[in-house]
Write a protein that binds this DNA or RNA. Structure first.
Length: 211
DNA sequence: GTTAGGATGATCT
DNA sequence: GATCATCCTAACA
């Protein structure tokens, strides 16, 4: 008989590897966000890798600052930043302590607690919109600055990552990162599950016009 | 279906 | 002062 895969927290060693190995390996994993209102779970379908000091697209490219400090800390923790004056984005810190690399969680399918997620995202029209895009994902899971630096590998905690069910390797695609310009644009460090409706549409980097 | 513009503020040069 | 790992709405085809 077939036993369903057990949902066990990913251990810290999972994140103590090169970020380009970790990023595709995160697809299909389960993210559990627990609040006072209850749990919301999500199946990761889209991520992007940011390779610390070697990557002009990374927040950590120019060294440690107050904002990116947790990227320099131990792996398996969250890095949450605020952007465009309105939104939060959620990353997982990768590589050994002192190596500031991470993976941006760009999209996922809400598998449990869709009603809660929808309450956080009233503008969402379809279930597949709930966590389609990095700021949508963070909003649907009620992630904000308070979760910056949280341990995602612990047995409990507000945000945890579990083994989940990785997709068949043939369905894993890679391509250029979304919204990353300049010298950081050249790398195909975005990974997604082909054909999944919760993967965000690709948008090339577009400098904003001033007003 | 697509595209343009505005919202809104921390961060870094 | 410009940029930003974005999203939403309205307008148009």
């Amino acid at each position: 008989m077939i036993t369903p895969p057990e949902q066990v927290p990913l251990d810290r060693a999972f994140f103590d590897r090169p970020v380009l190995d970790i990023a595709p390996d995160l697809l299909g994993r389960t993210l559990v966000r627990t609040t006072d209102q209850g749990p919301v779970t999500l199946r990761l379908t889209e991520v992007e890798a940011y390779d610390g000091p070697n990557d002009p697209g990374s927040h950590a490219y120019r060294g440690r600052t107050d904002r990116n400090a947790v990227m320099f800390g131990p792996p398996g923790h969250t890095y949450v930043y605020f952007t465009y004056g309105m939104w939060f984005c959620l990353n997982l810190v990768c590589g050994p302590e002192g190596t500031p690399s991470g993976v941006l969680l760009r999209g996922g399918e809400i598998t449990t607690g869709a009603d809660l997620a929808r309450a956080h995202r009233p503008a969402s029209r379809k279930d597949s919109d709930l966590a389609q895009g990095p700021a949508r994902l963070a909003t649907a899971l009620a992630v904000d600055r308070a979760l910056n630096g949280a341990d995602a590998c612990g047995p409990d905690g507000p945000l945890r990552i579990l083994t989940g069910t990785p997709p068949p390797p043939a369905l894993v695609r890679t391509g250029p990162r979304t919204g990353v310009g300049g010298a950081g644009a050249g790398h195909p460090w975005r990974y997604w599950i082909d054909g999944d409706p919760t993967v965000s549409p690709y948008r090339a980097h577009a400098p904003r016009k001033r007003r």
